[in-house]
Design a protein around this nucleic acid. Sequence first.
DNA 1: GTCCAAGAAGACTATTTCAATCGTGGATTT
DNA 2: AAATCCACGATTGAAATAGTCTTCTTGGAC
Lengths: 157, 157
Amino acid sequence: MLKLTKKADYGLIALKHLAMPRPTRESASAKEIAETYHIPLPLLAKVLQKLGKSGFLTSEQGTNGGYRLARPAERITVLEVVRTIDGPIILTSCFTSERTCDQSDTCIVKEPLRRVHESILRLLDSISIADLVDEEVPDPNDSPLVELSSLLPAVSR
Amino acid sequence: MLKLTKKADYGLIALKHLAMPRPTRESASAKEIAETYHIPLPLLAKVLQKLGKSGFLTSEQGTNGGYRLARPAERITVLEVVRTIDGPIILTSCFTSERTCDQSDTCIVKEPLRRVHESILRLLDSISIADLVDEEVPDPNDSPLVELSSLLPAVSR
DNA sequence: GTCCAAGAAGACTATTTCAATCGTGGATTT
DNA sequence: AAATCCACGATTGAAATAGTCTTCTTGGAC
């Protein structure tokens, strides 16, 4: 079904929040972020912890503690974040790792899908947290958006 | 976690199979395809039925019946197929339809992710079943593949 | 006309993945 | 010491996927 988990969403929201210019202090607590965006605190906390362990965030404990970015937002890509939280991105189970699915030997779409997979990785890798702040997600090829026709149930094409 | 379901895989495999030049007859039965690629028959049957109802395949019942493409492989895109089988492609739950997730009002990554979403749609829309047969999945921008570094656990970047 | 090979269709079950919670413990500031 | 905050592991509940079973219909072969 090709979608990100909520955890990944939460992680991106949090990172973007921390990357945005903020009036008061540079850091923000999990609670603060959770309340701002109506995210369940314990869940967000876990996500932040994982992001911390993976080196995207640093944390400070105690009163007025919180999280802050461990490196410039320009140098954190959406791909890294998603992969950290959701685990490796997999388009099909075929090439998860070495594990073979029942097809694998006979699978004839494996190779083409691998390329699609790589294109998606490349896309996600090209977007940084800073880009999210600017709201200017680069448009790799700036071809027109997918036409409406292709969004309708496929029948007469 | 961003992946296709097996049903979608099965559907693509079947369509590619039907698009490939075949010595004997033009059509192929579900059983035949299932055996060739080691796919559970009842499951594949369902997928084929759905593809039939959606206008990608025509079916013939009775002895020596089977499925065949309803239109040239060039005019069936991976996007249509995936969407037919897996349902609408969703990158995040935010913009599923009108339904709002708890964030939605406050969500600050919605818009950027929508663009990523559209890029992925565009990518999938650019690939036809015929392309799968040629194994030449077009490389939208032919930039180098994602470097190895970005495939490793993100730590020192 | 009977039989068999296929497709059509719906109900059903098992497994896995996600989302979310709970509880406990440790660090830091005031 | 109290309040605030992060760290971490275990667990539960719900939803999505994968796969099975059963019954029915259709159409050709003999």
